[in-house]
């Protein structure tokens, strides 16, 4: 899969820092699951956090904290929460446990359907699937706030070029969309 449209670097930095609301984190994690080059960049960005952690001022732990840790280390681990496999990339699977076929589409205009994917966080942002019929023009629309659009299947073209599976359109009202063109691969 050749990914040609990547998120803005500041978007990847927000993901690395962990400050995104769940819907945005899901879109970026799904994109990264589809993009090895994107995962390489994410590793580099995580190193910023690693360096900052190294430099962090030490705040003394309470007495007994180490004992508590060593005692807890003896306890058996809880079983890991396993995400069921599905026909979508793993980070998206918990939101579509029965795959894309289970999506409940709502008509949203000619050739356009939407399927809301509920998230657990209480943010005002929203995660959804958007289905556009083949051959339909994708309208240019103005964006209120940040909008991340990841192509799962099919393709579309806009003034930024052709978007295929794994590609992401990272639009923001404040910043002109700027695809990152520095991928190593």
């Amino acid at each position: 899969m050749t990914i040609t449209h990547h998120p803005d670097m500041s978007t990847l930095m927000a993901f690395s820092a962990g400050t995104f609301d769940e819907p945005y984190a899901v879109v970026i994690a799904t994109h990264l699951a589809m993009s090895e080059g994107g995962r390489d960049i994410m590793h580099r960005l995580n190193a910023i956090g690693g360096a900052l952690l190294d430099d962090e001022q030490e705040t003394e732990m309470s007495s007994g904290a180490l004992d508590r840790l060593l005692a807890a280390a003896d306890q058996p681990d809880l079983p890991e929460q396993i995400t069921p496999s599905s026909d979508v990339p793993l980070p998206l699977a918990p939101y579509l446990p029965n795959g894309l076929t289970s999506a409940k589409w709502k008509w949203s205009g000619p050739g356009v359907a939407i399927c809301d994917l509920p998230t657990r966080d209480e943010s005002s942002s929203r995660l959804m699937l958007l289905r556009v019929a083949a051959g339909r023009p994708v309208p240019e629309h103005s964006h209120g706030g940040q909008e991340l659009t990841l192509i799962l299947s099919g393709a579309y073209r806009d003034r930024f070029g052709l978007f295929g599976p794994g590609d992401i359109a990272d639009h923001d009202e404040d910043v002109e969309h700027k695809p990152i063109a520095e991928m190593g691969a």
Binding site: P23, L92, R131, E147, A155
Partner: peptide, 24 residues
């Protein structure tokens, strides 16, 4: 890498399906 694998039997198969996050 886990690839998206969409069944060809889906009737919207040639359509474009996107995952979208919006804050509005």
């Amino acid at each position: 890498m886990k690839m998206l694998n969409i069944s060809p039997s889906l009737k919207w198969e040639p359509d474009c399906i996107c995952l979208v996050a919006v804050d509005a």
